[in-house]
């Protein structure tokens, strides 16, 4: 869920930008380090950014009839790690603002925080814990992508609720309001995204087991072609 240009008051827009900056800076540093040892990853990450941009242009059918697009935050978090996803997501969101007028420059920080920081971190954490309790690969991937997607949308709802507290009910009432607006579309969407991510992972394990292993040092032993 992108927050549109100019929607957040100035204090919130600046605040979220300041909050997102250290993550993006750390991610940039981590990519720089990674590229120094694996030069081929430089192009890979750039192409991956283009891939997430293209993902957002694909319409995804949702069970309630409305259409939305996959966010790819979960997939990216699993494939490239949550640290690298912050700068990649920032680039993608900047491009979406400048090429599609989707999202915005003043709300870039808030959008980066929900989609490129919280989403991938949650997805990665869910994946690791699911694997630790020996869940099947498909189950772990599904849970990671679906919950990463949901976490993104809950964060956006919280950001909006914080910026626009309800006149009588305050933050919590406003949060219910904003989640209510999105819940209808977002919960089925999270499920679709989870299922699609499983399909993508299946294709990857079939066609690129080596790359998958190279990307994921933490999960080496567990990814089997």
């Amino acid at each position: 869920m992108h927050i549109m240009e100019g929607f957040l008051p100035i204090e919130h827009a600046v605040g979220w930008t300041v909050a997102a900056a250290p993550f993006v800076a750390y991610g940039t540093w981590s990519i720089k380090k990674r590229v120094a040892t694996h030069p081929e990853q430089r192009i890979l990450l750039g192409v991956a950014a283009a891939f997430s941009f293209v993902l957002s242009a694909l319409k995804l059918p949702s069970l309630t009839g409305s259409c939305s697009h996959p966010t790819g935050t979960g997939l990216g978090g699993l494939l490239f790690g949550p640290a690298a996803m912050a700068p990649i997501g920032a680039v993608v969101l900047l491009f979406q603002a400048l090429l599609l007028a989707h999202g915005g420059l003043t709300t870039l920080g808030a959008n980066v925080f929900s989609m490129a920081i919280v989403g991938p971190i949650v997805a990665y954490a869910v994946f690791c814990s699911a694997r630790r309790v020996n869940a099947a690969m498909a189950v772990a991937v599904f849970l990671a992508a679906a919950l990463g997607d949901l976490a993104t949308y809950v964060t956006t709802a919280a950001q909006l609720a914080w910026a626009f507290p309800d006149a009588s009910g305050g933050f919590s009432a406003s949060f219910v309001k904003f989640s209510g607006v999105f819940a209808l579309t977002q919960i089925p969407l999270a499920i679709s995204e989870g299922l699609l991510t499983v399909l993508i992972f299946n294709a990857l394990t079939r066609f690129n087991p080596d790359e998958l292993r190279a990307l994921h040092p933490s999960d080496n032993a567990k990814v089997r072609p």
Binding site: I31, L45, G46, A50, F53, V54, F95
Partner: peptide
């Protein structure tokens, strides 16, 4: 702006149209 980020942007922009076309 850090070169790493700019590299990502340039690569992303160059590949975006190719991937859109493929999709």
């Amino acid at each position: 702006v850090p070169a790493t980020l700019l590299d990502l942007m340039v690569l992303c922009y160059r590949t975006l149209f190719v991937l859109t076309d493929a999709a």
